[in-house]
Each structure stands twice: as C-alpha cells, then as structure tokens.
Design a protein around this nucleic acid. Structure first.
Lengths: 202, 202
DNA sequence: TGTTGATTTGACCATCTGGTCAAACTCACG
DNA sequence: CGTGAGTTTGACCAGATGGTCAAATCAACA
C-alpha cells in the first residue's frame, strides 16, 4: 500500500483509473456481481497491482460511494431559501434530471445499493441525507405556509422528485424498450416541468 | 429432474417452497448475490435436492421472473377504455401503489434486474411489456384527444406512475430513513392522488 | 407386502474469486 | 550512474460456489 505522503503522479493516475473502472463495473453488476479482476482489467492493471492501491474490493466500493455522495446530493444542497419558490424547485428538478442524464452510472451505483437495503451506506444515509433533507423540507414547508406553493407532504414531494428523475437513469433499459429511438430526456424535461408547475401552483 | 407428468403432491409443495425462498433471496441480494445454498436452506431442502427440481440457479430465477411478470403487469392490464378516464387512471395508480405495499419483494426483484440492464428478461420486456404499454397508451391518447384528460406525453405519464409507485418498494430503506416511524403509504396515497388529479385535469 | 418410480442426500469436483507474498522492475533524485 | 523508495507481477492459497452422481430412502399402488 502506498505511504500516506503526497501522492505521486502514478498514484494519482492509477487511483483515478481504478475508481473510474470500479464505477463502470459496480454500477453495471452491483457489489457482489463485480469482480476485482474485472475492475483491474478495465483499469489497465493486474489484480495484485490494483490491490496495492486499495486494500480490498470493499474499500474500493466504499471510496467510490463516499466520494460520490456529495456530488449526488449537490443539487438539493443548492436549493436556496431566498430564491423564488417555484423557480427554485423547478431548477432543482432540472439539475436532478441533468444528473441522471450525465451521470447514469452514479445513479445506478446508488440504486443498486439502495435496492439491496443499502448494507454499505446505511449510516451515511441516516446522517448526511437525513440532515440535508430535513433542512430543505423546512424551506419547502415555509413556502407552503406562506402560500407560495401548494400545500403538500414535503417528504413525499422530495420522494416524487427523486423517483421521477432517477427513474430515467436507473431503469434506462425499460425506458428505452418503450420509447424506441426517441431520446428519453427530450420528452422527460417538458413532462416533469409541466407536472411540477401544475402540482405546485398554490 | 421430475418427469413432466402431472406434478405430485411433493413436487407442488417443494417447487412452491423453492420459488418462495428464491423470491426472498434474489430480491434481497440480486441474482449474483444469491447463492443456491441460501435458497435451498430457506426452502428447507438440501442443495442437491433443490437441484432435483430446478436444473440450475438460472432456471429458478427465470421461472420466478416469468411467473411474476404477469402479476406485475396485471394492474395496467386492467385499465379499461370504457371507464371514466380520470377514475380509471387513479385506480390504476392505487392498484400499483398497493402492489408496492403488498409485494415489495417482487418489486425489488424486477428492480434488481432492470438496474443491471435486464440481462435475463430483456426479451420478455420488449415483447409483453412493450405491447401492453402501447395498447394502453393508445387509450390514454384517445382520452387526451377527446379532452377528457390533460394532453401529456403518454409514455412519460406511464413512466411517472411506475417511478412514483415503485419507488416506495424499491428504495424502501431510503424512504424509511427519511420518514422515520411514519408509514410511507399513509402519506403516499393521498400525495399521488392529489398529484395526478392536478396533472390530469384537462 | 413387494415393487417401482419419486425423492433425498453425502461426498465430491471444477471453477471462480478475494486476497497474499516475495521477487523483480522502474523511477526520481543526488 | 547508483540507490532507495515506489511500483508491478507471477505464482500461489483458501474458501465459496454451482453443479454432479451413485447410492440410499421413501411413497404409492397393484
């Protein structure tokens, strides 16, 4: 294992390659379905070489998840209490849909983990996620109390946004079976926009 | 492997026990994460005994999926072109939400498969699912053309229903982390009801 | 009850997989 | 160069896992 000094050029390159490869493999096959050999090959390394940079398969997975959780929650983090309520929420939704479009692997990485009961990130969820959601739903509740947007159950409002936007990344195959050649996001963006305008109108 | 005559009492009992156990294990761990031993133990059989009834792990999985696909699509199948549009759609949504509540394992079984690209049911999807969805979206489009419900992209309307309802089963852990002790479906039912009433109002 | 087919199992196998290790190789720097 | 730290690898191991098989046991029916 490399010493914990400043990382060398090679360390940076290889760690990045491993995480990139791991994202591909874990998101496509889940933790159990991924093999260290597969990740190593995809990263252009031998298995022992990969294990020189990360002590175990589990460690790669953990590093990947915790490194990406922040990115994943960023759109919600940016929801601003001082902005225009309707526009803030719609722009949060657009950012979230954009994430599904640009980072489908990341979405599926989390989806895989969640569907199986989040055995490896349950604690991170109940801390970071819970806190962030509570903070933001407080804002939503304020807006509702002030009559700026329709009164709805704030948690379920958040769930609906997650469900709708992540569906396009997580169940991509199903979406494409139905849509054929049509670009999913072409139709999704106006659809969710209309949906939430109607839903949130006071 | 049992002959293909009429199944004996023992065959019926054991096949059912295996499929029930397999549903537990596959839905919780995915195909790759499940082991034959685990399924056998949960079904109260030895591994060779289990493999006397199904030729392979893959065969159990396939039998399970194809046996459940019909159940899974039943709510949509029941959408009736001659009923009242708004009530038909709302009742479809209620049935779908009810499925998530009563059959979360089935939902996660499909979710696991879909997230990983549906390697084992892709063909079933592009036949049965595609046909059924096209049939039902034609009804939706009619209703829209007649001004009975709001004009929306019918495929994305279906996606939104799937996403919203299945979210509660598939990402149950996340939902519970946020909601705490609150019953998810208690709030979900009125929420989705309100949502689609607003969305579909012409 | 005897016989035949159905059912069950212990022992076993080949392969896959995560992980180890000592030895070899490479790189940066004096 | 030369040297020491950083990097890479072939060979290897132990345990898990899907699957096989012959022999033993059981159930049902004549």
């Amino acid at each position: 294992m490399p010493k914990d000094r400043a990382p060398t050029r090679i360390q940076k390159k290889n760690r990045a390659a491993i995480l990139e490869a791991a994202l591909n493999v874990f998101s496509a096959h889940g933790f159990r379905g991924a093999t260290v050999d597969q990740i190593a090959t995809e990263a252009g390394l031998s298995k022992p070489n990969l294990l020189y940079y990360f002590p175990s398969k589990e460690a790669i997975h953990t590093a990947l998840l915790s490194g990406l959780l922040e990115t994943w929650l960023a759109p919600l983090h940016d929801l601003d209490a001082t902005g225009d309520p309707m526009e803030e929420i719609l722009s949060y939704i657009r950012r979230k849909l954009q994430m599904s479009r640009e980072f489908p692997r990341e979405s599926r990485l989390f989806a895989n983990e969640l569907v199986q009961g989040a055995p490896r990130i349950h604690s991170a969820l109940s801390h970071d996620l819970k806190v962030l959601v509570d903070e933001k739903t407080a804002i939503l509740t304020d807006w509702m109390d002030q009559g700026k947007i329709a009164k709805l159950h704030p948690y379920h409002l958040i769930f609906s946004i997650w469900a709708l936007t992540q569906h396009y990344a997580d169940f991509d195959i199903q979406v494409r079976v139905i849509l054929g050649d049509e670009d999913p996001y072409e139709g999704a963006e106006p659809f969710v926009d209309t949906l939430y305008r109607k839903l949130l109108r006071p």
